[in-house]
Amino acid sequence: MNVVTGIVLYAIIWFMTLFVILPIRLISQGEAGNVAEGTHASAPEKPQLKRRFLVTSAVAAVLWGIAAWIIISGAITIADIDLFNRFGMGQR
């Protein structure tokens, strides 16, 4: 795995992690009873984006480290997950 592949892998893992972390402990304005004029009741009252981005970065770094180790060490290879050839449906 080269540097660019590592960066792209981290970016993909970071955004996937962000989409999982965003709704955790989210209190909407409607639930809090404090709907600001011009916004939807489902808008977050306190988004805490800085905290969520930091948590996302930490979790993504751990997940990236695990994925990078698996790729670099060869613990799982393409041959291990190549289901088409495993079931005899690959190119002949």
Rank of each mutant, 00 (worst) to 15 (best):
V8A: 10
K50Q: 09
W64Y: 06
I21F: 05
S42A: 15
F53T: 14
S57Q: 02
A61G: 06
S42F: 11
Q29A: 10
L63V: 10
V20Q: 04
S28K: 05
V8R: 09
E37F: 08
E45G: 08
I66N: 02
F19M: 12
V20T: 08
Y10I: 02
F53C: 14
V55T: 11
I13Y: 07
L22P: 07
F19Q: 12
Q29S: 12
M16F: 11
V8E: 01
A58I: 11
P23S: 08
Y10Q: 06
T39G: 06
T17W: 00
L63D: 02
L54F: 13
L54M: 15
R51H: 12
L22D: 11
Q48M: 06
K46E: 13
P47H: 09
F53K: 13
A58W: 02
R25K: 15
I21Q: 00
S57L: 06
R52D: 05
M16G: 15
W64E: 01
V20C: 09
A11D: 09
A61H: 00
R52V: 03
H40D: 14
L54D: 09
V55W: 07
P23Y: 07
F15K: 09
W64A: 01
N34H: 10
A32T: 05
G65S: 03
R51T: 14
N34Q: 13
V62N: 05
R52F: 06
I21L: 12
V8G: 03
W14S: 06
A61Y: 01
V59R: 00
R51V: 12
V20L: 14
R25A: 15
A61M: 02
R25I: 08
S28A: 12
A43H: 13
A36M: 13
I12R: 06
A41L: 07
L54T: 13
L26I: 04
W64G: 02
E45H: 12
P23A: 08
A36T: 10
L26W: 03
G33Q: 06
A11R: 11
F53G: 10
Q29D: 10
V62H: 01
Q48L: 06
A61C: 08
E31T: 03
A32G: 05
V20E: 01
A36G: 04
I21W: 01
I24P: 00
E31N: 12
A43E: 12
T56P: 03
L49C: 06
V35E: 05
F15W: 15
V62P: 00
S28P: 08
G30R: 09
A61Q: 00
F19K: 10
G38S: 03
I12H: 08
E45F: 12
V62G: 08
G65N: 00
E45I: 12
V55S: 04
L54P: 07
A11H: 10
V20A: 09
S28F: 05
E45D: 14
G33P: 06
T56M: 01
G33N: 07
T56C: 09
A41H: 09
L63C: 04
A61I: 02
V59G: 00
E37H: 11
V8W: 03
